[in-house]
């Protein structure tokens, strides 16, 4: 995936999760911090490849809101 498609994909992803939060009541408890952590985890995995990114790293990213 080239960088432009990667960036486009990331933008689409951010838009999609924002739309899901607005549409689905069950996601209302999630705030901007969680949204940012999800997007960061997505970007981190997309750019580094799933082979290099362990599930525990993603858990820490989202659960602890750590930086990637």
């Amino acid at each position: 995936m080239d960088i432009s498609l990667e960036n486009e994909t990331l933008n689409i992803y951010k838009r999609e999760i924002e739309t899901l939060i607005q549409r689905d009541e069950k996601y209302k408890t999630l705030g901007p911090t969680e949204l940012e952590a999800i997007a960061r985890a997505f970007e981190f995995t997309l750019k580094n490849g799933h082979e290099k990114v362990r599930a525990q790293m993603l858990y820490d990213l989202i659960h602890e809101k750590k930086d990637g």
């Binding site: 994909t9 689409i12 992803y13 999609e16 999760i17 739309t19 899901l20 939060i21 069950k26 996601y27 408890t29 999630l30 969680e34 952590a37 999800i38 985890a41 997505f42 858990y59 989202i62 659960h63």
Partner: peptide
């Protein structure tokens, strides 16, 4: 952890939607 689970559910749903959109 409940919030994290919800975040991950949203993360997966977001990917499905992104695939559709792409």
């Amino acid at each position: 952890v409940e919030k994290t689970l919800l975040s991950l559910e949203l993360a997966c749903s977001g990917i499905d939607k992104t695939i559709e959109t792409l």
